[in-house]
Amino acid sequence: MLSRVADSLYWMARYIERAENNSRILDVNLQVTLDDENTGVDGDKIDWEPILASLEDQKLFNSLYEVTNADTVCEFVTFAKENPNSIRSSVAAARENARTVREYISSEMWERINGLYLWLNSPAARQMFASSAIDFFRHVVDCSHQFHGTTAATLTHGEGWHFLQIGKYLERADSTSRILDLKYHILLPRGEEVGGNVDTIQWQAVLKSCSAFEAYRKIHTGQVTPWSVAEFILLHDSFPRSIRFCVEGVDAALHRISGCERGHFCTDAERLSGRLCSDLNFTRIADVFKIGLHEYLDGIQLRLIEISSAMHSKYCEWMEPAGGQEQQQA
């Protein structure tokens, strides 16, 4: 398949996943802040700054807005055209990539992406956002799921499909690590203790933003603890949004593309993904907390970027940097 097509499929999947994850993060934060007791300008800042920190977008945000509160952060992460990672920009970028591979993807896939794009740019989206932001974010998540479902049901599961999977799982692993990291940035209110009510609510929110609360409850019936939540989200072997599961997905897809057997490698990308896989397979959550959760997640994010660049230079290296499309690196 054309290198450019592989590249576009990869980015199309990444951008759709990015739109979904941004919606999840905002949805959960909205719900948590509805429960908390932070008030006033400072309270708004405490509630919403962590989002920007975990998305690593503070600088751009500060150049656009004067105050940090629910309205400005939601606007920035949802609609802002100036923000290349906003939900709207991500969907527009996904659609742009889809347009370049119209002849490769199924018409149904295109109609899903195009429909979401047209809706996000219509007054109907604004209305829904104004009347219930939570409904709005759920809708975006639904659309993303519909896209993946349509893709699985209508696209040949050949080489292109595997590039799509790599894009989807790399982005999801990265986002999940950011959601988990979000908790690191959220300060506990004065007087609250680790393991107290507020702390528990926040850890529950982390689970919910990964659609993991119900799955988690099936395994852990007792108290929601930081250790067990982090373990579940990082290391669970079959929950589809856990980082380990996602990296497995990346590794499997890479091996399907090259035809190399799992557990071996014939490209650099496979070597890196395989190594990250086995690290995650043989890590205990206690080891993670010994290093520090935040530091550990930072490390994971860097290794995901390495896999992405290795994959890119192996399969899409024909793209001359000057002439190629500029893409937003995660």
């Binding site: 054309l2 290198s3 450019r4 097509v5």
Partner: peptide
């Protein structure tokens, strides 16, 4: 390109 089942390419491809 879809109707013919052939690749669509730009100059850089």
């Amino acid at each position: 390109a879809r109707a013919m089942g052939i690749e669509i390419v730009v100059g850089q491809d």
